[in-house]
Measured scan of single mutants.
Amino acid sequence: MQRVNMIMAESPGLITICLLGYLLSAECTVFLDHENANKILNRPKRYNSGKLEEFVQGNLERECMEEKCSFEEAREVFENTERTTEFWKQYVDGDQCESNPCLNGGSCKDDINSYECWCPFGFEGKNCELDVTCNIKNGRCEQFCKNSADNKVVCSCTEGYRLAENQKSCEPAVPFPCGRVSVSQTSKLTRAETVFPDVDYVNSTEAETILDNITQSTQSFNDFTRVVGGEDAKPGQFPWQVVLNGKVDAFCGGSIVNEKWIVTAAHCVETGVKITVVAGEHNIEETEHTEQKRNVIRIIPHHNYNAAINKYNHDIALLELDEPLVLNSYVTPICIADKEYTNIFLKFGSGYVSGWGRVFHKGRSALVLQYLRVPLVDRATCLRSTKFTIYNNMFCAGFHEGGRDSCQGDSGGPHVTEVEGTSFLTGIISWGEECAMKGKYGIYTKVSRYVNWIKEKTKLT
C-alpha cells in the first residue's frame, strides 16, 4: 500500500490518463441519441435557420407576430419608411378606419389613436360632414345658397324668414311668412316636400332668348283662358290664391305678392273693366268669414305684352289694390325667389296649380277651390304637342294621358313649387288646347323671366 501511494504521488498524470480511459469505455446513459432527441424537440425550422439574422431580410411573422416588435424591426421587413409607417399605425392600436367614419364618399386613412378623412370636392370637416359648395344638395341650405369668396357655403332665406341657429334652416321672422300653410287642420295635408338634388348652379339658368321682337298675326285659340281631375282644397291650404270678379264672377285667378299687390295673367284683364279681388276665398257660393274683398285701382301688364300681336306672350300683369290686405292664416303671400332659384325650383319637376275653373272641358265651374299636382314636361315634348308657338318664356306641365289639367277660369292662378315646406311661385296658368285632352298640356308663363320686374313694381313704400 505504501508503494502504491508513492507511485500516485510521483505520477499524477498517469492516474488522470487511467481515469479518462475508464470513462470513455463506459456506456453513456444520461444523453439520448440524435434521433430520439429530435422526437422530443420537434420544432419547425425557421426561415433563416442556421444563418445569422443580421444578414437576412426581415420576416413579418418572425419579427412582429411571434413577439412584439419595434418600429426598427418592422422597418427591416418593409425596407421602406412609408410602408412601415402605414403598417405601424394599425399594428400599434388597430384600424381606426374600420367603422368607416368618413361621410359623403370620403376616404379614410388610419393613424395612431386617430384617423384622417380625405374629402371629395365640396366637403370638409373631420368626417367630411361639412358642405362647402352650393353645387351639392344646395349646400344643405333649406332655401338659398351662395358661395363666399373663400368658396364656403353661405345660406340665406327669402323675405319674412331668418336663418336658424344651425345656419342652414329657415324659420319665420314674421307672423305670416310667405308660402307657408298655417291653418292647423290643413298642415297635415301639406304636399310632399321637395329635397334639393345635386345641381350645376353655374349652368342652372337656361341660355334662352326671349323672342321679344317676333311679330306674329293673332292666333285663334280655343278655350285658351284655361282644375280638371283635381281635388277639393281645404280652407287655408292655398292662402296665396285669390279669385278675380268682373263682368262675371271667378273669371280668373291670381296670387298675393304682398298686402297691396296681386300677380295674374295679362290676358285676364281689360282696361276700363272694374275688377274686384277676393282673398281668403274657399267656396265661392258661401260666406265663410275668411274672405277679404278689395278693388283694383291700377293694372300693370308687362311692358312687352301686346294682345294685338299675341294674347299669351309675356302673359303676366300686376294688380294694385285700393287697401292693403290683412295677412292671416287664410290670406298669405306666395314666396318669389330670384331668377336663378325660381328656375331651379321649376326644374324640380312638379308643381301645384289651383283655381275655381271648370271641372271638365266646357263644363261647370268649381264651387270649392280645386288643386292638382302636375309634372313638368320637357321642352321637346311640349313643342311636338301643339302647332302653336311655345315661346321661351312659357313652359308645359300636365299629363300625356289627359284627364287632369287646369281649365277655363283658372287662368292667372299660381303654379307653385314647394321647397322644404315653403311654396314659391314658378308659373302662372296661361293657356292650353281644350282641357285635359290626351297628348295636350297646360301652358304656363315662366315666372323666372319676370321676377325682377315683379319685385321692382310691387315694392311697398
Results as ranks from 00 to 15, higher is better:
residue 48 N to K: 10
residue 359 V to H: 06
residue 431 W to N: 08
residue 333 P to D: 00
residue 320 E to N: 02
residue 65 M to Y: 15
residue 100 N to T: 12
residue 298 R to K: 06
residue 440 K to T: 14
residue 40 I to N: 15
residue 182 S to N: 10
residue 137 K to I: 05
residue 394 M to K: 04
residue 125 G to A: 02
residue 288 E to F: 05
residue 85 T to C: 04
residue 192 A to I: 09
residue 289 H to F: 11
residue 214 I to M: 07
residue 219 Q to D: 06
residue 450 Y to D: 01
residue 415 H to V: 03
residue 13 G to H: 07
residue 385 S to W: 12
residue 17 I to W: 13
residue 28 C to A: 10
residue 363 G to K: 13
residue 8 M to S: 13
residue 189 L to D: 13
residue 26 A to M: 05
residue 43 R to H: 08
residue 248 V to S: 04
residue 54 E to D: 13
residue 114 S to G: 15
residue 156 S to L: 09
residue 197 P to T: 11
residue 283 N to L: 11
residue 9 A to N: 13
residue 10 E to I: 12
residue 297 I to H: 04
residue 51 K to F: 05
residue 328 N to S: 13
residue 435 C to I: 03
residue 276 T to R: 03
residue 111 D to C: 11
residue 80 N to V: 07
residue 372 L to G: 12
residue 260 K to W: 06
residue 334 I to C: 02
residue 96 Q to Y: 10
residue 317 A to T: 03
residue 31 F to T: 15
residue 447 V to F: 01
residue 426 T to H: 02
residue 424 F to I: 00
residue 186 T to M: 11
residue 2 Q to A: 15
residue 261 W to S: 01
residue 247 K to H: 09
residue 277 V to T: 03
residue 82 E to S: 08
residue 101 P to E: 03
residue 301 P to L: 12
residue 136 I to C: 04
residue 427 G to T: 00
residue 41 L to H: 14
residue 389 T to W: 14
residue 200 D to K: 11
residue 250 A to K: 08
residue 30 V to G: 15
residue 175 P to F: 05
residue 162 R to K: 08
residue 401 E to C: 05
residue 56 V to T: 15
residue 229 G to H: 07
residue 178 C to T: 00
residue 379 R to W: 07
residue 244 L to C: 02
residue 12 P to M: 15
residue 269 V to Q: 03
residue 46 R to N: 09
residue 414 P to K: 02
residue 383 L to F: 12
residue 212 D to V: 10
residue 228 V to F: 08
residue 29 T to S: 11
residue 388 F to M: 12
residue 290 T to E: 05
residue 18 C to Q: 04
residue 114 S to A: 10
residue 198 D to Q: 13
residue 112 I to T: 15
residue 261 W to E: 01
residue 135 N to P: 15
residue 316 I to R: 01
residue 409 G to R: 09
residue 136 I to E: 14
residue 144 F to K: 01
residue 406 S to R: 12
residue 144 F to T: 00
residue 71 F to L: 11
residue 307 A to R: 12
residue 56 V to P: 15
residue 68 K to T: 12
residue 95 D to K: 15
residue 330 Y to G: 04
residue 227 V to P: 12
residue 312 Y to H: 08
residue 397 A to C: 03
residue 66 E to L: 05
residue 276 T to P: 00
residue 360 F to A: 06
residue 401 E to F: 11
residue 176 F to A: 04
residue 38 N to C: 04
residue 307 A to I: 09
residue 265 A to C: 03
residue 308 A to N: 13
residue 304 N to M: 14
residue 40 I to L: 11
residue 413 G to A: 14
residue 166 N to F: 02
residue 456 E to V: 07
residue 400 H to V: 14
residue 83 R to V: 10
residue 88 W to Q: 15
residue 203 N to E: 07
residue 123 F to G: 03
residue 36 N to F: 09
residue 397 A to H: 01
residue 228 V to M: 06
residue 143 Q to E: 00
residue 192 A to R: 06
residue 344 I to C: 05
residue 134 C to V: 03
residue 319 L to E: 00
residue 393 N to T: 14
residue 388 F to T: 14
residue 86 E to N: 15
residue 316 I to P: 00
residue 271 T to Q: 04
residue 315 D to A: 02
residue 327 L to R: 05
residue 95 D to Y: 13
residue 31 F to D: 07
residue 319 L to M: 15
residue 300 I to A: 03
residue 315 D to I: 00
residue 211 L to R: 06
residue 296 V to W: 01
residue 144 F to N: 00
residue 13 G to Y: 10
residue 157 C to P: 00
residue 273 V to C: 02
residue 331 V to G: 00
residue 307 A to K: 11
residue 340 E to A: 14
residue 187 S to Y: 09
residue 166 N to A: 03
residue 189 L to A: 07
residue 399 F to D: 11
